[in-house]
Amino acid sequence: MHTSAELPRAAPRAVLFDRDGTIVVDVPYNGEPSLVRPMPGAREVLDGLRSRGIPIGVITNQSGIARRLVTRQQVDAVNARVEHLLGPFDVWEICPHGNDDACGCRKPAPGMVLSASARLGVDPGSVAVIGDIGADMGAAAAAGARGVLVPTGITLQNEVDAAPAVADSLAEAVELLWAGTP
């Protein structure tokens, strides 16, 4: 585990996760629930947060809907499979827009973080976002939330270098968020 900047020391009141590449193995434009595979340790990390009473949510760009590569119903079926394998989430935020739609929800825009925070009744500044690419960190920063990057094979080096904090696994990301808190 390592950080590229110091995280605030107050414990987060909620944690939002990117879906593909963070809590489940990334299958581009997945519309098939049987292809969902949890990332190593994801269930344990999520159950650990649940047992502490920390609300958790998912924020996910799903441009395949805008591109007509998957339907919203297929995305919903995949998300249902994610919940079946990883347990319930307190909130889901899904951006169905494409890169050129200029929406306020597509990461790195802050819309999904702000909406999830409002739905959970917590200030975005007390929320943490864990993801695998720079867009996840950008959304966190734009919303005033904390971000922790858990790089995968698709994460670019400049995204790692620019991340406010970097961890080698989901478990280390959560440990980092609580390091030094009362």
Rank of each mutant, 00 (worst) to 15 (best):
D18T: 04
K107I: 06
G87W: 12
V24C: 09
R146T: 14
S51G: 07
A142C: 00
D132Y: 09
R43I: 09
S34Q: 14
Q62T: 05
I59R: 02
P110N: 08
R52V: 09
T22P: 08
S63I: 01
G87V: 13
C95L: 07
D47G: 10
L114C: 00
G98L: 01
P124N: 12
G144V: 12
L35V: 03
H84A: 15
D26A: 14
G111V: 13
G121N: 03
L46C: 11
E83Y: 00
I59Q: 05
D101K: 09
V82N: 05
V78C: 06
I59D: 06
I56Y: 07
D136C: 02
R68D: 13
A140C: 10
C95K: 11
V78A: 11
A109N: 14
L85W: 06
Q73R: 15
V36L: 09
L86T: 04
V113F: 02
V78T: 04
G31F: 04
R119Y: 01
V113H: 06
E44K: 07
N61A: 04
D20V: 05
A142M: 12
C95P: 07
A116G: 03
V78K: 10
L85I: 09
A135H: 09
R106Q: 04
Y29V: 12
V75Y: 06
P110Y: 08
F17P: 03
D47I: 10
P88L: 14
D76R: 15
R43T: 12
V70M: 05
V91I: 15
I130L: 13
P28A: 13
R68Q: 14
T22H: 04
L69E: 15
R106K: 12
I23N: 02
P124C: 14
A143N: 02
V27R: 12
V82C: 11
A142E: 02
C105L: 03
M112E: 02
D76K: 11
A143I: 04
A142P: 01
G121Y: 05
G21Y: 08
S117G: 13
V45G: 08
L120R: 11
W92V: 14
D90T: 14
D101M: 03
R67E: 03
Q74W: 04
V75M: 12
D101A: 14
V75F: 07
V36T: 06
R67M: 01
R37W: 00
D123I: 01
A42Y: 06
G147S: 05
V58N: 05
I94G: 03
F17V: 07
L49I: 11
D100Q: 14
G131N: 12
P40G: 05
G138Y: 05
P55H: 12
R68S: 12
W92C: 03
S34H: 13
D136E: 07
T60N: 10
G131E: 07
N30L: 14
D47A: 15
I65G: 10
R68G: 08
G21L: 11
A116F: 01
C95H: 09
A142Q: 05
I130A: 08
R67S: 00
R119M: 04
P55R: 02
P38G: 05
D76C: 01
G21A: 13
A118F: 03
A102P: 00
R67A: 10
D20G: 10
F89D: 04
